[in-house]
Design a protein around this nucleic acid. Structure first.
Lengths: 153, 153
DNA sequence: GTCTGTGCAAATGCTTTGCATGATG
DNA sequence: CATCATGCAAAGCATTTGCACAGAC
C-alpha cells in the first residue's frame, strides 16, 4: 500500500472537501489535504494505524494526533464513516463515490462482504417513521459463517 | 439500582448458566453466580462501569477484573450481547428471556428505542443466503433524530 | 500579524494480564 | 490437594489533550 495517487473521482471529492473546509471556517492546511488524499488512495476499509503506517512510510509528515483530529473532520464532512468490526479499534470506510451498503462478516475467517438490499433500506425507512424518527444513517452488520467456513457444508 | 433480586425467569436462566459452566468445565464460583444475578437484575442496557459501581455499593466482593473476565463468559454462553452506541465503551444487553430486537438511537438526546420488524429479519435471512452465508446474529442501529429532537418539527 | 493547525509527549479511560492467594470439586 | 478463579496492581492500547511552535489567510 505504499503507492497512492489521486484519480478523477477523488479530484471531484477533493474540491468538495475544500469547499466544506472554507464554508465551515476550517483552513485548507497541507496536512488535511494530504490526509484526504491518503484516505482516498485506500480502496478498502482502513483504520488509524494503517494511515499512520502509510504516512510514515511515505514520509508524508502527518503525525498520529493530526490523523485522529482530521479523521473526525472527514467524518463530520461526510466523506468517511466509522464501521465497527470484530476487534476493539475503529475502522473507517469511504462514503464519497460509494453506494450505500452494509456488511456481512464471517466470524471465522474475518472476510467482509459488502451488500445492498433494497428491501432492507425500505424496511428501515418504514420502521423509523413508525417510531417518529428521522433516520440519517444506520449501521448493519450480519455475523455468521461464509460458504468456505460453514461448519455444515 | 441498589436493589436487586432474582425473579422466576432469572432462576430458569440461572440453571442454564450453571449447566453451561459444568458442561464447559468452568467452575461454579460464587463470583460468577453473583455476576449472573447482578447482570440480570438490571432491566436495561448496562456497561462494565455500572456493574462495578453496583457491585461496590452492595459489597458484593467482585473485582473489576473478575467482572470483565466473566462478562466474556456470559457473552460466550449467550446470555448477553455487546452493543455499541455512540460513546467509546462497550454496552451490553440481555439475550436470555428477551426477544430479538434492534435499536434506534437519537443522535441528539441519546434516547435508545428498541424495535422489532419482521420484514427486516426476513430480508436479512434472504440476503445472507444470497451470499451463501449462514447468519448467526446481526447488529443493526438506526441513527437519527427522535420526534422531540427533530429539527424540522 | 492574528488566528488556526500541528507535533510532541504526556494523560486518559477502558480493558487485559501476571502473579500470588484463595476457592472449588 | 490439584486445578481453576480471583484480587490487586501494573501494563496495554487506541485515542485525546495541553502547550509551544509553525503555517494559513
Amino acid at each position: 500500500m505504499g503507492n497512492w495517487d489521486r484519480d478523477a473521482l477523488d479530484q471531484e471529492g477533493r474540491d468538495k472537501f475544500i469547499n466544506y473546509l472554507k464554508e465551515h471556517g476550517y483552513s485548507c492546511s497541507k496536512s488535511r489535504l494530504k490526509l484526504f488524499d491518503l484516505v482516498h488512495s485506500i480502496h478498502h476499509h482502513f483504520d488509524s494505524e494503517e494511515l499512520v503506517k502509510i504516512a510514515n512510510e511515505n514520509k508524508l509528515q502527518i503525525s498520529r494526533a493530526t490523523i485522529f483530529r482530521n479523521l473526525v473532520l472527514l467524518e463530520e464532512a461526510g466523506f468517511i464513516k466509522k464501521v465497527q468490526f470484530t476487534d476493539r479499534h475503529t475502522h473507517y470506510e469511504h462514503i464519497y463515490g460509494h453506494k450505500v451498503h452494509d456488511h456481512m462478516i464471517c466470524v471465522k475467517c474475518g472476510v467482509v462482504v459488502e451488500f445492498f438490499k433494497r428491501s432492507i433500506q425500505v424496511a428501515l425507512e418504514e420502521v423509523a417513521s413508525e417510531h417518529s424518527f428521522v433516520a440519517h444513517s444506520h449501521k448493519l452488520e450480519i455475523m455468521g459463517h461464509c460458504k468456505k467456513c460453514n461448519p455444515d457444508s
